[in-house]
């Protein structure tokens, strides 16, 4: 219990208070960056565990012929090819500074197999996934903007003001309004909604989040909540 919970807990508490001190005391100002570096080193080591888990899970899926096992084969192949090409610097040109050393160049250069994989496989796939958002936004908006009750009607009207006000349609539709009623033009209404209603609501949420973050951090720093180490409550 001492090694599993008590010592890690006290180390975490001490590290937390040191980080806090680094925000207020000049001599400890560089601690934040050092903590981030230490975290990156540990995370990089932990990546081996992640890779092991990925391999194990996908190999098991292939051997059991689970649903979608073909995708597991693709995952394994992509993982192994990228790892090999990147780790062994396949096709990397020597650096101009060290022309005789074959591995001196960077594997991330655009004209290397690793760069090619990134540019012509990774980027298009990522863009494809991101592009799906447009369709999901449309389907979510269709559901959310159905006028079921008074609140939904309000949401629908606000959405129309925003959609029209942020395009030329808004200018075309309400541009004829005289100057004394210019506040009712859709482009001005949309700015008003964003600056007043949206900002007020958003700030209220952000203040709540800030207090929640502070309370959660203090719960952990003071050792009141230990469930992040596993188990319930004070553990």
């Amino acid at each position: 219990m001492l090694l599993q919970r008590t010592i890690p807990l006290w180390i975490a508490i001490a590290a937390g208070f040191l980080m806090l001190a680094s925000s207020f005391l000049r001599p400890t100002q560089g601690l934040g960056e050092d903590f981030a570096n230490a975290f990156s080193v540990i995370a990089a080591i932990a990546f081996v565990l992640g890779a092991g888990s990925l391999l194990k899970a996908n190999l098991a899926k292939v051997s059991r012929r689970d649903a979608g096992w073909g995708f597991a084969v693709v995952t394994l192949a992509a993982f192994l090819i990228t790892l090999t090409v990147g780790l062994f610097k396949v096709g990397v040109h020597p650096s101009p500074e060290f022309p005789t050393a074959p591995f001196s160049g960077s594997q991330q250069a655009a004209d290397t197999p690793f760069g090619w994989l990134y540019e012509y496989v990774m980027v298009p796939l990522t863009s494809t996934m991101f592009a799906l958002l447009a369709f999901f936004v449309a389907s979510a908006a269709f559901r959310a903007f159905r006028a079921k009750n008074a609140a939904a009607v309000l949401l629908l009207v606000t959405a129309f003001i925003m959609l029209l006000g942020r395009t030329f349609a808004g200018v075309v539709l309400t541009g004829w309004l005289p100057d004394w009623a210019s506040g009712l033009r859709l482009e001005n209404l949309s700015v008003f909604v964003m600056q007043v209603f949206n900002t007020a609501g958003n700030r209220a949420i952000i203040i709540g989040i800030a207090l929640g973050v502070a309370a959660t951090s203090l719960r952990i720093l003071l050792g009141v909540d230990r469930s992040w180490m596993g188990g319930g409550g004070r553990g």
Binding site: P8, L31, F35, A38, F39
Partner: peptide, 17 residues
């Protein structure tokens, strides 16, 4: 892992201080 993360952070903190 928690122990390693926290120990690494503490060592860095001491060096920085």
């Amino acid at each position: 892992w928690w122990t390693a993360v926290a120990l690494g952070a503490l060592l860095g903190a001491a060096r920085s201080a």
